[in-house]
Design a protein around this nucleic acid. Structure first.
Lengths: 195, 195
DNA sequence: CACGCTATTGCACTGAGTGCAACAGACTGC
DNA sequence: GCAGTCTGTTGCACTCAGTGCAATAGCGTG
């Protein structure tokens, strides 16, 4: 029991987590985030309010847990890219993973609309993406030419790429999903590369 | 009374606001954001908790009200720049206004440290800066060459510039204020301009 | 069957945020 | 000086997010 702290528990736990998140997001999307109490979410999931807090630290977590996973996915994909690949090319390839996520366009649109429709969720979203920087920057740094400020440069590139992704996302929502998100991303990146 | 809805009231109100914000930030910085209740802030300012809510919509607002003003300052400065000036040049010039704000380096460092030391404040910070985009992007768009995606491009540039500012800020805190913030900004911008 | 581990749950409490109604002070017209 | 209005302040009661604690229920193991 020392080596294996019961991975089965971990497994069921993460299944329950994503199930709860799904239930919650559905409720949020239909009733509105602010008009939905955790009491209701718990009831809909058939558990107690207190137990909900065993799975998620806050109401925001419940809505945004998916984002943390996305960050991990992107980082993992980025780490797999060839070491000599250009930073922007590698990032672009890593972002491709977002298109492969098991989620219908409708669900994705619903989710992002939810995100942008509430102040504290938008804030949490922005913060979560800011954390992606910490995951991506170390993977970008070795791809840059030697320089005194390489660490800063890596952070800037990671942050800027994520920002472009965010801008593309916003535009994608504005267009009601009637466009390819990564195309929009490419346009955004083009815009900042050269004056 | 129709034309002038007593601008005097507006004036005193904004004075009281900044006074309250100052008091609150001092408390937050010494006791910690989470360990400070609005009850205490109100007491320190000599008003009631309820009245505090007449001036600020939330605890976060109390800590971050300065940021909204900064955004307005930057936008105002940007609007003053010559219309034919390059977007990045104009932005860089507009950001200069941040150095002119009446705030000792110690106070600024204290404030930013406060910002980065708390999850929800970091989130609020990120969100406030995201709102700057909405102010700056329309001022940038006319500076870009005609294109199908000019609006998207303008948003991307505004967002990227703000992101670089944020990265520079983080680095500036990491260096304990021992550097010129705009120099760091320039380095960050350089890094993303060229593939 | 009994034991121990862990997740679940209820309960009570703090603190943010809101709606409402009472109140105090300033300013106006008489 | 006095009555009336307008507005900012305050207290009160309430909802809801989030936390600590202690009791309990469920489950695998001896």
């Amino acid at each position: 029991m020392a080596q294996k702290p019961t991975p089965l528990r971990e497994q069921t736990r993460s299944v329950v987590r994503s199930l709860l998140a799904r239930t919650a997001i559905d409720l949020f999307a239909t009733k509105g985030y602010d008009n939905t109490t955790l009491e209701e979410v718990a009831a809909a999931a058939g558990i107690s309010r207190r137990t909900l807090f065993n799975y998620f630290g806050s109401k925001e977590d419940l809505a945004l847990s998916g984002l943390a996973e996305q960050g991990d996915l992107i980082a993992a994909r980025l780490a797999e890219r060839p070491a000599d690949e250009d930073a922007w090319t590698a990032l672009r390839a890593a972002f491709q993973v977002l298109e492969e996520i098991d989620m219908t366009p409708e669900a994705r649109l619903e989710f992002i609309t939810l995100l942008f429709g509430n102040d504290s969720l938008r804030a949490g979203h922005a913060e979560k993406q800011a954390r992606w920087q910490n995951l991506l920057a170390p993977l970008i740094e070795p791809r840059l030419p030697d320089s005194e400020h390489r660490t800063l440069q890596a952070r800037a590139i990671a942050a800027a790429a994520i920002t472009c992704l965010q801008v593309a996302n916003e535009e994608w929502v504005r267009l009601d999903g009637q466009a390819d998100m990564l195309d929009l991303y490419d346009t955004a990146v083009q815009a900042i590369h050269r004056p």
